[in-house]
Amino acid sequence: MQLTIERIDDVCVVRFEGNLDTNTAPEAEEKIAALISDGAGRMLADFRALDYISSAGLRILLWTAKQLGASNGELRVCSLNETVREVFDMSGFSSILGVYDNEDEAMKGF
């Protein structure tokens, strides 16, 4: 699992690569927590290179969305592959997070 972080305008873009599961989630959580404590308000998680996600990964996303929401921020996600998209649909995450086709779409009106 690798995370690449880039700031575009005021949005913190986090690009995921690999898997977000039981073993990789703690590391991702640590990095995202650091971003939030550094003042990140709006965050875009780009899943273009994310192979799959399990509920341990969903837990990080839920935690992040709650943290950002508490300070009027927002978490958006984009570029989900078919499997990740299915996990989002099955878990109901598609309806609680903004899901976009790609980074450009996600950045519109962010």
Partner: peptide, 22 residues
């Protein structure tokens, strides 16, 4: 309950739900 709003969502049981669904 996968239809709850974000503030009320919990993660417990979700993993097995995903396995059963997919």
């Amino acid at each position: 309950d996968t239809s709850l709003p974000i503030a009320e969502r919990k993660i417990g049981g979700l993993g097995i739900h995903l396995v059963e669904s997919m």
